[in-house]
Amino acid sequence: MNNSLRTPILFITILLLTLTLIYIFNSLLITQEAFYNTFQNQLENETIDEIFDIEVRHLWISYIFIPVWLLLKIFIITLCLQAGLLLNNSKLKFSDTFRIALTAEFIFLIPQLIKLIWFLFFKTDYTLSDIQQFYPLSALNLFKIENLSALFIYPFQTFNVFEILYWILLAGGIKQAMGTDINHGIKVVFSGYIPALVLWIICVMFITVSISPST
């Protein structure tokens, strides 16, 4: 298939899959019961019902932002990979790099699917925080969340098996597109994407420590 045609098809596919997963997630997991489990120790039932109604009524807004967020994320990762290529004295067309980032992005659908299955069939009694904090096969699973500062949740979530597979997919994509070896791809990922990821995690930690009332 023509490359210029492949990229939009790939983007539409990942977008539709993401939207479908989020729709199923919202419909089956973000239930009134989950709201009660989360807030019943602090709020009156009527207040919980009100919050749930507002949440349900406004859920559609999140669907509008998904394509924008997805596009922006892939665009920024493409820029990071371009920086990595530049640092390694290599050149690859922006559109090719974009397609590599887009293809690798599919890997992140797997943890979302696992998360859905986990809460749907295994941990059926959950709170909204449980959903927010769970990330399959991540460093977070090695700790008891109650003993962990809010500051460390995101970095530990981000360090997961799928993230490492994502690095490998990016490196493999670069190797294939440039006809070089995997080491070159890894060098590009480590000099372009990883520093940006570390900076992103630091930014999220900074926001968390600034706005979270607890540590």
């Binding site: 920086a83 530049l86 640092l87 500062s149 500051l151 520093p195 940006a196 570390v198 900076l199 630091i202 930014c203 930690m205 900074f206 420590v209 600034s210 607890s214 540590t215």
Partner: peptide, 27 residues
Amino acid sequence: IIAIGLLTFSIGIFLAYNIIKKYNSKK
């Protein structure tokens, strides 16, 4: 490349320093 690298590194260090400061104060 050096300028972008230095800028990224400086932002990272600045944020990391502030994270530690705020975290210790909250603790």
